[in-house]
Amino acid sequence: MIRLENVTKSYRTDEVETTALADLSLAIDPGEFVAIMGPSGCGKSTLLNILGLLDKPDGGRMVAFGEEVSDAGERKLARLRADSIGFVFQSFNLIDELTVEENVEVSLLYGSNGRSNRKQRVADALSRVGMAHRARHRPQQLSGGQQQRVAIARAIASDPKLILADEPTGNLDTKNGDDVMALLGELNRAGRTVVMVTHSPDHAAYAKRTVSLLDGRVVAETRNG
């Protein structure tokens, strides 16, 4: 589904250059549930941003959904994001000014969906995560767990092939964290590919494969169960 070959990425500030990814190669196959682990600053989030086409690698090759994207234009990347990828963030990243259903709808605005089609998909996604009854609320009126479920609803509304989750349970208590993991596992069993960054070994156990990073390199890969 996505293949990275010898990808590098570094960040420059005025004084220092930080290498985030060093010569990293990784392949994600359809139907996988991959957990990415590692200490702070090892490049997890950078990797996820690159997988999600939110950021471009400095070097190396990248093929996503059968297309070469190493030097694709902004327009093409935006289309791929709209059609094929769903995001779940640690801090939920819901838009405060919009209602729950409007937030979910945002992921459909930039694809090729008609208005009535969008309404239906939003309703379906919200009921799948059990948030249909809160459709007209604002994000601030919800608990953290509820907000994350809305964020997941948003990630799946456009029926993407790949779901990327950046520490989806990081801001949640254990109970809510477990609920979210259960939801992601369910989505994976229903056929979606899920890639997740996490600090928690317990939550990593939900995944079928765990990739460990250190200083921008893959240092270990384990198959679970």
Partner: peptide, 11 residues
């Protein structure tokens, strides 16, 4: 967020 959801620059 909107860009992550696939919004282009023009959007």
């Amino acid at each position: 967020i909107r860009k992550a959801m696939g919004a282009s620059t023009a959007d």
